[in-house]
Design a protein around this nucleic acid. Structure first.
Lengths: 213, 213, 213, 213
DNA sequence: CATGAATGAGTTTTCATTCAT
DNA sequence: CATGAATGAAAACTCATTCAT
């Protein structure tokens, strides 16, 4: 009962509660969706009771929205990673796509946010916007900048694709969608698929000799 | 009682009911998800009462599953289209991708089935398998065959991408995901994006001269 | 299609309908009770539809009551049997009790009416009165007359029992109650029990020698 | 907030709730039968709401079964009474039958359990078995033992009735059945009828002198 | 007459939310 | 702070009854 014994004092516990609840809410909402999740399920996961959840969040709806925001911001460390890219444009694009892949399709948390965005998107547009601002927009901006730079320097082709560089990221969605639907029943090698995709968009499928002729 | 007045006789009405209900169920379930949709909403959409819905489907759950199967099969006419492809391998791949795009990302019905697969997929694996068999599998099979043929004839590069031809279809998912999330608030030109993607994967982003050196 | 071929003409069928429905209603109500029986169950038993039942009976409630009355009157042929009794008073009492047993505890129909009287009796007092008039009252009247006659002639003891001759019939209820509850899972030899009971009430359990002393 | 005002604290209330609900359920189910009783009726009787009932019992069906078990066990104090019998065999049999009468036919609770057993017996065989074990079996066992003892000591006749001593208890069922059906509209003097019955089975209806000849 | 599609009032059950302890 | 008993509004599902054919 001395102070040193309890690693988590009451005060600490209290301070952590909202965070814990948001984490538990994430798990439950992601697994069952908004409507099918009961506030009590979330509480039970933390071995507390419904009432306690309502001490920190006024309604289920607010809890859901804060959970989403919390989950989204807590895993959004793309920008720092983007700043560290080095090498040729092609190399940096490649690395950027791999980073985006790791953060979007390969990270369970971000992937489940995508699921929620798709499932409840019509109900809560802010959710989608939130995801967009934090994940999509920075990645696209970086991609656009990189392609532009590469075209300017002559490293990359000046082509229709240069205008919509987001297509470069398409396979990320493919892997994410696959994982969300198959629920790990048929796992795919996402990284290998990403590498294939990058190789493909970099060098094309058609024989270059054909183009030379 | 004159002939012209009542176009729909009792028998006709009855014959159409299951179909009507499945259509209405599709709209409601797609818009709000399984749990948040009330059977009464589906009924009201048809100006009938809950009871009538239960005359044709024993439970909400069965209604959902039959709705999914119905919606999936009613829009699956890919295989016939696939059989009509003509031209070089590259051309046929291009056309195939555009067809798949039209059927998956651009068709509201199929797109909403994707949403349901993502949203309720964990709950109902058969749904996902159903979608896979009807949409994904045939497309991938056709793509694989085309790439193999192209590589053999020398038209296409023998490369890593040839082993996982499904990456060719990745942008379809991207467009679909985008549309599902933005709910038409920020429409994108899917066809243009598809064209860009096809152009990209066909000819590559990197300057061919660079590869020659 | 000739007249002779159809054994049951349409008219005959029609005339029999109410009777058939009442019989079917008896089976269903007896098996499940009033509230748990659906009008459709009754119709299905006759391979007709609900609507047809309502053609003959305005409500479920009326159907129930008429079913009860019909079932009760159709099996009430006690009085004729009572008139045929012959022999000494003791013999006639014995035979009367055996007849009453056959008609009340051993006859499925009458037994089920007892079940309904007990189950729904509070709801429908007329039912009970109906049963009483048709079964109980005549039997008791006959019993009373027989006991009175026997006492007068000196064949039977003048005792308290002579005042409430209905106790003579008590084991009928016992067998009936047993059968209603055990639902044939533990059949009992009702006739043997009745014989025992009759023997008992006739000659007593206590050693007569004890009384002589 | 003074002590005297709130006799029932929250904890007390909660501890009593299951018991209260079972009692209320007994009243409602006994009065209207399983199917015709609404969970809300049970709640209203306690001035609480449906929801509260479901806090303690998961379904109406479970509530019914637990109610039955509760009511059956709460009124089963036969065995102690049976142990206190004194006097000659005939006296003890007499007293035993009167006790059984008090507990079965004359006790409203037990009588209503008989009604439920008859009414819903086909649906729930365990109910009947439960009643049998708690009421019928011990009484019959005691009766059998007493008759056997009496026959051995010569106090009682060795006769057919000695083999099926349950007929001794038959009038209990008669009184119970009568009360269940007449619903107190035509009250009978159960005790007098029991006394008559006991007298009858003890000494017989037929003149003993007749037997001596 | 007979049908069975349709209705709508009712019943069981669930769950977000409140609040006394 | 935390609890969990209680509520009440809602949702799934049922069924007696009606009525157009």
């Amino acid at each position: 009962m001395e102070r040193g014994v309890k690693k988590t004092s009451r005060a600490e516990r209290k301070a952590r509660r909202p965070h814990e609840i948001l984490e538990a809410a994430f798990e439950e909402f992601a697994a069952k969706g908004y409507a099918a999740t009961r506030v009590e399920d979330i509480a039970t996961r933390l071995r507390i009771t419904k009432g306690t959840v309502y001490l920190y969040f006024p309604t289920k709806d607010v809890l859901f929205q804060e959970m989403f925001r919390h989950a989204a911001t807590s895993s959004a460390d793309l920008s720092t990673a983007i700043g560290c890219l080095r090498g040729s444009c092609a190399e940096r694009i490649r690395d950027l796509l791999l980073i985006a892949y790791e953060n979007t399709a390969n990270d369970r948390k971000t992937r489940e946010l995508l699921r929620l965005s798709v499932a409840e998107g019509a109900r809560l547009p802010e959710m989608v916007d939130c995801r967009h601002e934090l994940f999509i927009a920075p990645t696209l901006a970086a991609l656009t900048a990189l392609v532009k730079e590469g075209v300017k320097s002559g490293e990359l082709r000046q082509d229709t694709a240069a205008d919509t560089p987001d297509v470069l990221a398409s396979s990320i969605f493919q892997v994410a969608a696959w994982r969300l639907m198959s629920a790990d029943r048929e796992p795919i090698d996402g990284k290998a698929l990403m590498e294939s995709h990058i190789d493909l968009v970099m060098h094309g499928l058609v024989q270059p000799s054909g183009r030379m002729a």
